[in-house]
Every structure is written in C-alpha cells, then in structure tokens.
Amino acid sequence: MHELSLMAELIKLVSEDAHHRGIIKVSKIDVIVGDLSNVLPEALEEAFVYLRPRVEAPFDEKTELHIIREEARAECRSCGTEFVPDYRIAFCPVCRLPTSELQSGETFRVESYEGCDEDGN
C-alpha cells in the first residue's frame, strides 16, 4: 500500500551511499523482500519504474531493480521441525502446538548495488 514511499526510502539510501563513495551511475540494485514483510514486490517494481526517471543521478531509466524473494521459514521449539508456515505463523504442523519461531521472511533490505565512478570503475 505504501510501496511508493518505501521505494523513495530505498532510492535515498542507495543515493546517499553512492554519493559518499563517488559513484555517479548505479546500474543495478539487489533488494531482499521477505514473504512476511508486508511489502508487495510487484508494487515495489512499479514504484521503482515510476520514480527512476524522476530522481536525480545516480539513477536513470537503465538502472535495474532485482528483487530477491525471501521465503518464510519457521522452526518448532518443541520438536525442532523446520517448515514454511501458512497464516498460522507459530503453529507447528507436526506437534500442532503454537511453539514455533520465525527464522526468516521478514527481511526488507538492500543487499548490494552495482555502479561506476567518474573513471568508469
């Protein structure tokens, strides 16, 4: 629902870091989006395409956004079963107790980006 403002944050984060390193052009951004992060990858992509030509360098219409989906995984504290949870995030399918802990799926992080400085490096 607010992917446009999330994308504005993401662009600001990368811009500031690129500026700091003397990078004048960013060609690709890798972002990790967890299945339980409440961030919609499709909406994030649309927001990126919308904002990309409207923000200052180091971005242009050739900058790519690469979304890496992170699967939700949980582990049961009672029996140790690892599983992909449905909406019952803490519910273990084996011992049927709500004793599971989420191991992954909530990440929303810029993992890395590629770019070059004035010398083309």
Binding site: E9, L13, D17, I23, R109, E111, Y113, E114, G115
Partner: peptide
C-alpha cells in the same frame, strides 16, 4: 563495482 550495502530500507525510520 559492486557495493555490499546490507542496509535495512527503513534504516532512517528505525
């Protein structure tokens, strides 16, 4: 060059 940023998108908010 590749920069390993590894930063939360909501870093400033957090």
């Amino acid at each position: 060059m590749e920069i390993k940023l590894k930063e939360e998108v909501l870093k400033d908010q957090n």
